[in-house]
Simulated assay, not measured.
Amino acid sequence: MAGRLGESTMGDVLRWGAGGSVNFAGGFPDERLFPMWHVQEAMEAVLTRHGPQALQYGSAQGAEWVREAVAGHLERRGVLTSPETVLLTSGGQQAIDLVARLYVDPGDVVVTTSPTYFAALELFEAAGAEIVTVPLDERGLDLDRLDAALGDPRAKVCYLITDHQNPTGISLPAEQRPLIADLLRRHACHLIEDDVFGDIAFEPPAPPIQRWAPDRVSYVTSFSKGLSPGLRAGVLAAPADVIGKALALRENTDVCPNTLTHAVMGELLHSGAYHRLLPRLCARYRTRRDALLAALDRHLSGRAHWTTARGGFFTWVTLDAPADVEELLRTAARSGVVFLPGARFRRGEKNGGERAELRLSCARLDPAEIEEGIGRLAGLL
């Protein structure tokens, strides 16, 4: 760990990027795009209509009227659910944690992609799981490798990010999703389907895997990217028995969700404000993605290749020549630009030699900042 950008917390990423750096490291939404007026209006409506109930302890599952609004939103996304099979959580990470605690014991196998979201990897490792990975690229998953991995009798859980993956930006092909559902049934394996970036879409996404195997999937999403991370408005949509067991765990940890901020989320859904806001928000993030792709083409064409995300915040860059990416990060930080090395999103694989990978997020950057940052980075290669 010595001499490395902190691997365990995003706080280290932000500290490294302080002081005027062009920060491609954090996967945070742009606070300038937060719907401040709409949140204020929703808060006033909640306090007027729900008053003391919104400020009191509530159901561990979340208020029924909020779950009804959330279930309606999920149905628009293609999720098969109902208010009874929805649990409101403190962000998507808590939803993943609850399901992992239900299914994963020390020595069990968790099957996931390589690369994937580092905080989920850390969570599964903390539970004592062995991580088994399946390669992921823009063509999707190697389904034969996935079949073999799920065939391990120790494989209790599969973890996949369906759309606009963190870190690569890749979305699983529509034709693979029902095939993955078939594999889950064949091997009696439970899927944690992480779709926290699903709403930040630049083109209509395919239905989630959950639609083909609702009895085998715990679907996780969040309103952190489209509304605000500070609301801590996460969602778990899962089979009734999973929801029941997750409720028991949640009652012993944080008792109940944040009744006030989740009511604000519910009001924004119920009024239709959230769905009216999304197109504008997605258009702004698409403009930034396009600016990043154009800057990469100008400065790194012939020296690297990269993904083209159909939504979300991330672009995955692979340098064509070998490089020590951790050393490149240290050098880049001194030049005022930071990113996350690809090795942080892999397990059991070296990120050197043939793999020199970077995760870039431009969600909080204007086009001029993106151009400046990629120009600085290219000058170091």
Rank of each mutant, 00 (worst) to 15 (best):
F124D: 03
T89K: 00
R288F: 04
C256V: 08
P35Y: 06
R364K: 13
Y57H: 13
A291K: 06
R364T: 15
E125A: 15
W65F: 13
G373N: 08
R376L: 12
R376P: 05
A127W: 06
V255N: 09
V217H: 00
L183K: 03
F314H: 15
P167L: 04
D97E: 15
T307Y: 02
E7R: 14
A95E: 00
H38S: 15
E357S: 07
E372S: 13
S59Q: 06
E84N: 05
E326C: 04
L231H: 03
A206E: 02
G17F: 07
G353Q: 10
W212F: 12
R289G: 09
G27W: 02
W306R: 01
E44W: 11
G128T: 12
A60G: 12
A45C: 03
G72T: 14
G72C: 12
V13S: 14
Q176W: 08
G379Q: 07
V46D: 03
C282L: 02
P322I: 06
L98Y: 00
F124Q: 06
P367I: 10
R211F: 06
G3M: 10
C158Y: 03
D324M: 04
E175T: 11
R276Q: 15
Q210G: 10
P204V: 10
A45I: 06
L360R: 02
R284M: 13
V22A: 05
Y219V: 02
G226Q: 09
H190L: 01
L377G: 05
G78F: 05
G375S: 15
N23P: 09
G198H: 11
A246T: 04
G91I: 02
T89H: 04
A332Y: 02
F345H: 09
W65E: 09
P167D: 03
P153W: 06
E175V: 11
A238C: 03
R101K: 13
G51F: 05
D152A: 02
T133R: 09
L249T: 02
G27M: 03
R364C: 10
E349R: 15
E138D: 14
D147K: 09
L143V: 08
A63H: 10
R303V: 06
S335I: 00
L380P: 07
L236T: 02
V46A: 05
Y117I: 07
P153N: 01
L340G: 02
V217F: 00
L98K: 01
D108N: 14
A100K: 01
T253D: 10
V104R: 00
L296P: 03
S361K: 02
G20Y: 10
H164T: 04
I209T: 03
S222T: 13
H305F: 12
L184W: 02
P208S: 12
D147F: 07
Q176E: 12
E31S: 15
A126T: 13
C189Y: 00
E7S: 12
T259E: 13
A181H: 04
D297Y: 09
T253L: 11
D97K: 07
S171E: 05
R298H: 12
V86C: 06
N351Q: 13
D105H: 15
G140L: 08
R359K: 14
H299Y: 14
T259C: 07
P257C: 07
